[in-house]
């Protein structure tokens, strides 16, 4: 009798894949998590020694962006189904496919989800939250998880239906287009955030002029900088941070460094509210 994966197998694989990184470890990273995710598939297709072999096969080193693991699960489901029905697919082929896809897909998932989707939904939520509105956290939670769950659900489905054809999609320019588009959106919004959501004020007085009508015009360093380009100092600071990170400085040290700058600036009066 031909073995066939059922709707409920896919449903439970989808549910389990939400916990893919639970056992992330320094040795094999998401290996156990991947195996945990595909257990409903293995359970349906294999018994006895074949099952043991399948479990072992999916405990090999594995690591990618957690959301784009979905199409890989889909392709693996399709291949395992064929193998269970007697087609000659070796362990090496299945593992080679996983390892071959995880790199390129992580390269797509990181800029799309960590670089664009999360910063944008989170900063949108934070803009409401800063005013104390509960709408902010809810908006972020619902929006981001909606995107994430849709990618997971349709990713598994897509991978299963297309099977190994997915590899040509990964290599083709469809994904490249999405990644590039997401990067543009992300960078554009980052530019806006650097300007809008930072505050840096140098209240050092350059000149105090009493005009003829008696009003006093105080010119500070900040007034001059703002006439040049509002937000110039945060922009320069951003590029300094990028430079430091390129030189492998841990971001948390940069944060501590900036705290020191803030305290020093406040103490000397160079930086103000």
């Amino acid at each position: 009798m031909e073995k066939k994966l059922t709707k409920s197998d896919f449903f439970w694989t989808f549910i389990r894949s939400n916990f893919a990184q639970g056992s992330w470890n320094m040795e094999r990273m998401q290996a156990l998590g991947f195996c945990f995710g595909v257990i409903p598939i293995i359970k349906r297709l294999y018994t006895g020694d074949e099952r043991k072999q399948a479990l072992k096969r999916h405990l090999e080193f594995y690591n990618t962006h957690p959301f784009v693991t979905a199409p890989i699960i889909g392709v693996v489901a399709a291949m395992e189904e064929q193998r269970a029905n007697g087609k000659d697919i070796s362990d090496g082929v299945i593992n080679g496919l996983k390892v071959g896809m995880m790199g390129p897909l992580a390269g797509v998932g990181d800029p799309i989800f960590w670089g664009t989707a999360r910063p944008i939904t989170a900063s949108l939520g934070a803009s409401f939250a800063l005013g104390g509105s509960l709408f902010g956290p809810i908006l972020f939670f619902v929006l981001f998880n909606l995107i994430r769950l849709l990618v997971r659900w349709y990713g598994i489905k897509y991978g299963y239906e297309k099977g190994t054809d997915v590899i040509s999609d990964v290599a083709g320019n469809k994904l490249q287009k999405i990644t590039e588009g997401a990067s543009i959106l992300g960078l554009f919004v980052m530019g806006a955030l650097v300007n809008k959501w930072t505050s840096m004020n140098v209240p050092v007085v350059v000149s105090t002029i009493t005009k003829q009508d008696g009003t006093v015009a105080v010119t500070t360093v900040q007034t001059i900088l703002d006439q040049l380009m509002p937000g110039l100092l945060p922009l320069l600071l951003t590029f300094l941070c990028i430079k430091l990170m390129k030189n492998k400085v841990n971001p948390i040290w940069i944060i501590f460094g900036l705290f020191a700058v803030g305290i020093l600036g406040y103490w000397t009066g160079i930086l103000g509210m």
């Binding site: 959501w197 930072t198 840096m200 705290f259 305290i263 103000g272």
Partner: peptide
């Protein structure tokens, strides 16, 4: 004060 620009990191 640092809180105003620490976000750039």
């Amino acid at each position: 004060i640092a809180g105003g620009f620490i976000v750039v990191v």
